[in-house]
């Protein structure tokens, strides 16, 4: 009765078409999302790479500029200065470089910290706090630091071996540990005390460990032995 009704056929065809179109649209949409995600990621990677390159190039530019300035200075001096002036300028610069490297005995004002340990002092905790204490002194403007008379320079390691001694430049230093730092005394004290929550307090709070600290005048910090600073593996670039 109903089977050859053209209206029904048209409707069926229309519904089929609709389904097909919806399928195609959905597929297109899916592909678009997938490909867009891919392109976004590669663009983001490119941007991150470029940023890192820029940081590196900036650092390189700074060092190249510094190299150029030094060369210019040296050239100016050799061309314009008298022999005496030339040698005097070189000597002054050498003295400054040695002073900076830690190869000269230095005097100044700053702080004194003393750490006393006992048999139950935790080695790992003391190691960590001692490193952070030295780091905090540096952050507060310390320009020279010593532990038990050993000058702490750029490549100085500080290793807490056990409760009884620590090792600096592969030499054993026995407790109590006496630290001197030259810098602005109040900056240094503020840095290590932090209104009662500083590293000196943290060290004082360690089991079987005590710490005292104070500002100090007339500090003398010895030079680092030259043999401690090795450069045999460093080639000039």
């Amino acid at each position: 009765m109903k089977k050859n009704n053209p209206g029904v056929i048209i409707r069926n065809v229309a519904i089929t078409l609709l389904c097909v179109v919806i399928g195609i649209v959905a597929a297109m949409q899916y592909r678009a999302i997938v490909s867009k995600e891919g392109s976004d990621q590669s663009t983001l990677n490119q941007i991150a790479d470029l940023r890192a390159t820029i940081l590196n190039l900036n650092a390189t530019l700074e060092t190249v500029e510094m190299e150029k300035d030094e060369l210019q200075d040296r050239l100016n001096r050799i061309e314009q200065s008298s022999h005496d002036e030339l040698l005097k300028a070189l000597q002054t610069e050498l003295d400054n470089v040695k002073l900076f490297a830690g190869l000269t005995e230095v005097k100044g004002r700053g702080v004194y910290v003393q750490i006393n340990v006992g048999t139950r002092t935790n080695t790992g905790s003391l190691q960590n706090r001692l490193l952070l204490l030295i780091n905090e002194l540096r952050a507060s403007g310390a320009q020279a630091i010593s532990i038990n008379g050993k000058r702490i320079v750029a490549m100085s390691e500080i290793r807490v071996v056990d409760g009884n001694y620590i090792s600096v430049h592969a030499e054993q230093l026995v407790a109590p540990y006496e630290i001197y730092a030259i810098g602005d005394p109040s900056d240094l004290l503020n840095g290590i005390t932090m209104n009662g929550n500083g590293l000196v307090h943290q060290i004082n709070d360690l089991t079987d460990t005590s710490c005292i600290w104070r500002a100090a005048e007339d500090i003398v910090i010895p030079a680092c032995e030259e043999s401690v600073i090795n450069t045999d593996r460093l080639e000039s670039k």
Partner: peptide, 20 residues
Amino acid sequence: YTDDLDAYRVKAGLTTVQGS
């Protein structure tokens, strides 16, 4: 003097260096 200065500049970390 300059050779001395260059050597100490390496020790002081004031030069660019390379190595393994």
